[in-house]
Design a protein around this nucleic acid. Structure first.
Lengths: 248, 248
DNA sequence: CATAATATTGCAGGAAATTGCAAGAACATG
DNA sequence: CATGTTCTTGCAATTTCCTGCAATATTATG
């Protein structure tokens, strides 16, 4: 067994279980615990995980919000992402906004998919770099460390020149009257341009986002084409449907 | 059996199994392990696979696409990076090119450093996101999956509008007459704009890069202000010094 | 066609990396 | 603070890698 295969196995297991143990890995890989220890050491050296007593845990590239949020509502987000997949077809150009729901979506991309993705999100770009069929375009600009997206005038300028088939937007807050809103001015401005630059806007929102509002406006609620949520059958969805928005 | 047939077989097997072993190939192809080793060496040279101890693995799908290169000449690169640190001062705006030498540099940034970094490199941006004092600006554009940098017109446009104090460039090839050159047209064009946009160009180059050339020109050798290398005392450095370039 | 130049291949040796083991230090936990 | 676990360090056995070299095959050239 090649050392790289062990690395691969360790990283896969880590992603699945959110932790790995020396004892387990030693068993799974049929090598001594010392070798496992040295493997983890090497992976930690390259910043791919964090060693802890007894094993290792995933590396949060930074202790900020994005990585904290990845795991909350993980199953809901996966369910939402799975529904979103059906909108994708080869040859499309799509905008994918930052956020944990949209990140869950690109993680589910089947390897056969062929499209161009424009995104301001660094985690999404990294994820898609490993995908053989997707061309990735990263919008430029200053990086917001908390959400790991680029923002600012440069981002807006790049998006303005674009015409995309679909925009998948990760929304912070949805409200029938206030519309789509967000907590940061710059990010809201960027999202607004995304809405202008795509033929069809699909919002990904866990149900706890619905009926809430934040200071900065992204767009009117009627500009949304579809809302994908985990609980489409709920009472909550009714007012959106009355406005002509598909809720699934 | 023709060498090309062996190449063909190796690549096919690699695609099927996601790895190849010296021992297996030696058996399958009925040649010595040394010949297999040399074949893998040749294929690795052309970027068709990654040599590892015991055999080889494919290039893209494994998670070490960037890290696979980070370990070669690791100590040399660290030494180079350490020398480069002395050029940094709080308040500067600097451009940092992609590449493993420049990546080693940002890894050494002391936490007290306060500056703005503009870079097309995603690994560098990720690394610096953890840094409390550095503002990171990522240039936009299509992502080159092999080198994990953005490139193209958008990248160039963002750099053009910039005026930086220093540009740290990771060079592929340095030659006293041909100048700085690189293997890809687009990347060379981006590097060229970097050179135009910074007051001072500092090239990071392990000594094996010196005296070599590639198809696409980045800039004249005289546009460099300083070359940082691992073996500044060598004979190699003399002709550059005669051109007025500092070599350290 | 003959001969020289070049490339390819296998082999031998020493260098380097990987692995598992053992002994003692550091650590967590009750 | 006593105990069992985990970590580090050094070491030796094994495997794999690299270098130079000689034998053979291939190609170029007069």
């Amino acid at each position: 067994m090649l050392k790289e295969e062990r690395f691969d196995y360790i990283l896969k297991k880590l992603q699945a279980d959110h932790k790995v143990l020396h004892t387990e890995l030693s068993n799974d890989l049929q090598v001594s615990e010392d070798t496992v220890r040295r493997d983890l050491e090497a992976l930690a050296q390259n910043g791919l995980l964090i060693k802890v007593r007894g094993g290792a845990i995933p590396h949060s590239p930074n202790p900020f919000a994005f990585n904290e949020r990845i795991n909350i509502h993980e199953d809901d987000k996966k369910a939402i992402a799975a529904k979103a997949l059906s909108f994708l077809h080869n040859g499309q150009t799509i905008i994918i906004d930052g956020g944990t729901s949209t990140y869950a979506l690109v993680k589910l991309f089947p390897p056969s998919l062929q499209l161009t993705v424009v995104t301001p999100s660094i985690p999404i770009a990294m994820q898609l770099m490993e995908h053989p069929g997707v061309d990735v375009v990263l919008t430029g600009g200053r990086i917001f460390k908390s959400s790991q997206v680029t923002s600012g005038m440069d981002t807006i300028r790049m998006l303005e020149k674009l015409r995309a088939d679909i925009c998948f937007m990760g929304v912070c807050s949805l409200h029938t009257e206030v519309g789509v809103t967000g907590p940061h001015m710059e990010e809201a401005a960027v999202k607004n341009v995304m809405v202008q630059s795509a033929n069809r806007i699909i919002a990904l929102a866990t149900s706890d986002k619905m009926g809430t509002a934040e200071p900065y406006k992204v767009c009117d609620i009627t500009e949304l084409d579809t809302i994908i949520t985990d609980e489409a059958g709920l009472e909550l969805a009714v007012p959106y449907r009355q406005l002509g928005i598909k809720v699934i």
